[in-house]
């Protein structure tokens, strides 16, 4: 979820909370008038009162698997990612960090693909295997 969506949800929840305060005020005023003798009808069917759905294991987001480097022929991971609208590449040997990054998938730093690379005699990174690639998002 992107930060704008989160902010929008926070705004909606604040407004919802204010409406609940209004419900409470009305109920208190009625009970004040009738010395607590009023019996309220149950609240209407709200989405929040619906039974929460249980996610089937198949629906859960699979943790991205990224295999370890093969020391005999691979020396680093090359990561291609979007950062502030620009595609950049970087290299790392830290597989644990990379796996956490793929799992978190922060909107400000979206990994596009990960390759394993070996360094040639001149120190240039030569791709070996494609290890992970983002699936195209629906509608794109």
């Amino acid at each position: 979820m992107d930060p704008l969506q989160s902010l929008h949800i926070i705004d909606l929840l604040r407004e919802r909370e204010a409406e609940f305060v209004r419900v409470w005020e009305c109920e208190q005023a009625i009970q004040g008038l009738l010395q607590g003798a009023f019996r309220f009808d149950p609240p209407p069917d709200l989405p929040s009162r619906a039974k929460p759905k249980r996610r089937r294991p198949a629906d859960a987001v699979a943790s991205p698997r990224l295999r370890r480097l093969r020391p005999d022929r691979e020396q680093a991971y090359r990561v291609e990612y979007d950062c502030e609208g620009t595609v950049r590449t970087s290299q790392t040997t830290n597989g644990d960090f990379l796996r956490s990054l793929l799992e978190l998938d922060p909107p400000g730093l979206r990994v596009r693909r990960v390759d394993s690379v070996r360094l040639d005699a001149d120190g240039n990174a030569v791709p070996v295997d494609l290890l992970w690639q983002r699936e195209p998002e629906p509608g794109l």
Partner: peptide, 13 residues
Amino acid sequence: AYRRIAELESQVE
């Protein structure tokens, strides 16, 4: 108020 709450909850969903 409850009508509005239902509307807001639907928007969240």
